[in-house]
C-alpha cells in the first residue's frame, strides 16, 4: 500500500531523515517506535506533504507522492492526526469534525453518515458538539483530532503520539479506539513512545533512531527483542 525507498529529508544542512525505506501493507497496524527527535514526526510530515523529500521515492497504492501538495495527499487517502492535535481551537467540535470532510465536501449525505459514525465512536463528543474545541480536556481534544482525521475517510491513517499527555485510563481507551479503527478496515501507521501498549495492538513495528530506521519486525519479535525491551519498554 505504502512504500518508501531511500527517502531523505533535509532541513537546511541537517539531515532529518536518512535513507528511509519501509512498507506498510493494506489492513496493517504498523508502529513506529523512537525517542523524541528520532524523526518520527518528520517522517509523518513528509508523508503528509508538509516536508519535501530531497531524495528517494514515496509511493501510495501505486501513485508517486513526491512533491504532491498536502491537499492532494489527503485526497489520495493518507491523513495525519498530528502530535499536538492541531485543532481549530475557536471552532466548535462539530465544525472541526466537518472540516475533516473537506476533501469530500460535495458528498453531504456521506459526510453526515460519517459524522454519526464518529459520534458513535466517541459518544462524549455529541454532548460537546457546540463547544469550542479549544475548551475541551486533552483526551476529548484527542478524540476530536482522531475523529476529524477519520472524517477524511483515510485509507491510511497516521497517528503521531496520540497518547501524549493523557491520563492512563484515557490512554487505554485511545488504544482500544485505534485498534477498532484498524479492525474496521483502515490501515494505521502509529508513532508512539508508549511502546508496550502500541506493540500490543500492532501487526509490525519499525524502530527509528537519529533519522534512520534501525530495526524492523513483527509484534512478537519486537516484544521479545531485548534491545527494544530495554530502550523502549523499560523491562
Amino acid at each position: 500500500m505504502l512504500q518508501l525507498k531511500n527517502v531523505d529529508v533535509c532541513y537546511g544542512s541537517f539531515k532529518a531523515l536518512n535513507e528511509i525505506s519501509m512498507t506498510v501493507n493494506s489492513g496493517e497496524l504498523v508502529v513506529l517506535l523512537g525517542a523524541n527527535g528520532a524523526g518520527k514526526s518528520s517522517l509523518f510530515n513528509t508523508l503528509s506533504g508538509l516536508n519535501k523529500p530531497t531524495a528517494g521515492d514515496i509511493e501510495f497504492e501505486g501513485k508517486r507522492l513526491n512533491g504532491l501538495r498536502p491537499s492532494a495527499i489527503v485526497d489520495a487517502g493518507i491523513v495525519q492526526c498530528a502530535e499536538g492535535r492541531k485543532l481549530f481551537p475557536q471552532m466548535s467540535v462539530q465544525q472541526n469534525l466537518m472540516l475533516g470532510a473537506y476533501v469530500h465536501r460535495r458528498d453531504k449525505q456521506g459526510n453526515r453518515r460519517r459524522y454519526k459514525e464518529i459520534l458513535e465512536m466517541f459518544p462524549i463528543l455529541e454532548e460537546k458538539a457546540e463547544q469550542p474545541a479549544g475548551s475541551l480536556s486533552g483526551g476529548q481534544q484527542q478524540m476530536v483530532a482522531i475523529g476529524r482525521a477519520m472524517m477524511s475517510r483515510p485509507r491510511l491513517l497516521m497517528l503521531d503520539e496520540p497518547s501524549l499527555g493523557l491520563a492512563p485510563l484515557i490512554v487505554r481507551q485511545m488504544f482500544q479506539t485505534i485498534q477498532q479503527i484498524n479492525s474496521l478496515g483502515t490501515t494505521v501507521l502509529l508513532a508512539e513512545q508508549n511502546a508496550f501498549a502500541a506493540l500490543k495492538i500492532a501487526s509490525r513495528a519499525y524502530v527509528m533512531e537519529n533519522g534512520r530506521l534501525v530495526m524492523e519486525g513483527d509484534r512478537e519479535a519486537m516484544l521479545g527483542n531485548e534491545k527494544v525491551r530495554e530502550a523502549y519498554i523499560g523491562a
Binding site: G49, L50, S71, V79, K86, Q90, L99, V103
Partner: peptide, 16 residues
Amino acid sequence: IAMAQNRDGAFLVGID
C-alpha cells in the same frame, strides 16, 4: 477561518 486558526491543521485536513 480554519487557516487563520491553525495553518498546519488546515493543511492536514486537505484545505488547499
